[in-house]
């Protein structure tokens, strides 16, 4: 079966849970005090969606504002971006806006963006109203997910949605083999089994 290989990046303020979300999804692991990311990590997972399969190459970046210049190296040829904020931290939500702006002006034109309101297991400490977040994302025409890297809530669904939106946005290029996947382009190749998705059978 044809596999679409694509690069996605995680973006967002420091300590919102970028690494934790990626790790939960790819390895089903959660560490309360995940070591802080200075540069970037790389994880990969093959996702089965009804239309086909997508190899998500996840580039997990460091969050601090000062490293923006470095982060830009990672999102440059990305097909998808996951912008994460922490529902218990108002400032991290404000950063989402600036990331969206930056991606719209600097990243590839058809980049798929989803937003994750992470740490939804800490509902009591919530600082961002859910309706506010949803309304904001609706205006931006971006899907919003409530996630918890700790419990796993919403994580699978979010990555699946990201994978299928990327598939839809790029299926025109599928079949034009030989393009360079590393630069975020599409290749057709045999299905590789690295970290197989499949907790939910993949097709739902």
């Amino acid at each position: 079966m044809a596999t679409m290989e694509c690069k996605i990046v995680t973006l967002g303020e420091g300590r919102v849970g970028k690494t934790s979300l990626a790790l939960k999804y790819v390895k089903n692991e959660f560490h309360k005090d995940e070591i802080s990311t200075v540069n970037a990590n790389y994880l990969t997972k093959l996702v089965q969606i009804p239309q086909g399969s997508v190899q998500l190459n996840i580039w997990d970046t460091a969050g601090q504002e000062r490293f923006r210049a470095i982060a830009s190296n990672y999102y440059r040829q990305a097909k998808g971006a996951l912008i994460v904020y922490d529902i218990t931290d108002r400032k991290s939500f404000d950063k989402v806006v600036s990331w969206i702006k930056e991606l719209k002006s600097q990243a590839e034109k058809n980049i798929v963006i989803v937003v994750a309101g992470n740490k939804c297991d800490m509902e009591k400490e919530r600082q961002i109203n859910r309706p506010e977040a949803l309304e904001f994302c609706r205006k931006m025409q971006i899907r919003h997910f409530d996630t918890s890297a700790k419990s796993g809530n919403g994580v699978e669904e979010m990555f699946m949605e990201l994978a299928s939106q990327i598939f839809e946005a790029n299926k025109g290029e599928l079949g034009q083999s030989g393009r360079n996947s590393r630069r975020g382009k599409i290749t057709v190749e045999k299905t590789k089994h690295r970290e197989n998705s499949g907790k939910k059978g993949g097709c739902c």
């Binding site: 200075v38 540069n39 470095i70 190296n73 590393r182």
Partner: peptide, 19 residues
């Protein structure tokens, strides 16, 4: 040619390889 930027080495400077 593989598209690896020098920034891949950034953390070595930022942390003196301490991570």
């Amino acid at each position: 040619s593989e598209g690896i930027e020098m920034t891949v080495f950034a953390k070595y400077f930022l942390t003196f390889f301490m991570c």
